[in-house]
């Protein structure tokens, strides 16, 4: 085989090589995007937007689990003792000092009041998804529940890796990095909320 001819200046082949490579490169990147993006949530998933909940039916001390966008949501009618316990906590004791409330400002502090909407502290609405690895925490348990006799009320304990949340759903102990997320919701009336 003959050796490839050596040129000391830029020639037509160099130009074709660079031009072809550049067009092919851009083409590969542009073509890759649809193949990557097809894995993101599709239109049907995005359409499952909101649910309405009749909170009037939830008695004091009772907690219901609903499904919103594929995930469980806690709606808890808190007792006065639970609210008082949450209010008594000093901000310095919190592992995550941010409210994590979709209805509040991004950097609002995690006071009990900032964990609910419209100052209605009786009803705590939050994602039942542990911020560690996504398990559903168990209610009325853990070290930060209110103890009344030999029963515990409020407070959550994640069975997977031992994260503990207090009566306002704030992370207090264990590997979870954040307070339980409060989803976007609003009061349609005193006894009805819309999540999403």
């Amino acid at each position: 085989m003959a050796d490839t001819a050596v040129h000391d200046t830029v020639n037509r082949r160099d130009f074709l090589m660079i031009a072809t490579g550049a067009v092919a490169g851009v083409g590969v990147v542009l073509t890759a995007w649809p193949f990557i993006n097809q894995m993101n949530p599709d239109a049907a998933v995005l359409a499952m937007a909101s649910i309405e909940v009749d909170i009037g039916a939830i008695a004091e001390g009772q907690e219901v689990i609903l499904k919103w966008r594929g995930n469980p949501v806690f709606v808890r009618h808190r007792t006065k003792a639970e609210i008082d316990a949450a209010k008594a906590v000093k901000m310095e004791e919190l592992k995550d000092p941010i409210a994590r409330n979709a209805n509040a400002k991004d950097n609002d502090s995690a006071t009990d009041e900032n964990r609910v909407v419209g100052g209605k502290e009786n009803f705590l609405v939050m994602m039942a998804v542990c911020t560690h690895l996504g398990c559903v925490p168990i209610g009325n348990s853990g070290e930060f529940a209110v103890v009344q006799g030999n029963a515990k009320t409020g407070g959550w304990f994640c069975p997977c890796h031992g994260s503990q949340y207090d009566t306002a759903g704030r992370i207090r102990k264990g590997p979870a990095p954040q307070n339980l997320d409060v989803p976007p919701y609003k009061y349609l009336s005193d006894s009805k909320i819309q999540i999403g």
């Binding site: 990557i36 894995m39 993101n40 949530p41 599709d42 998933v45 966008r69 594929g70 995930n71 998804v129 560690h132 690895l133 996504g134 398990c135 997977c160």
Partner: peptide, 29 residues
């Protein structure tokens, strides 16, 4: 739990898990 491991990645973690799931939780997709 295993897919949520990726949510630990700073900044892009939750976008990555949503992308892996094709939704907001582990589901049919």
């Amino acid at each position: 739990v295993i897919t949520n491991l990726f949510s630990a990645i700073p900044f892009v973690g939750s976008s990555i898990t949503t992308w892996l799931w094709g939704g907001y939780s582990v589901d049919n997709p």
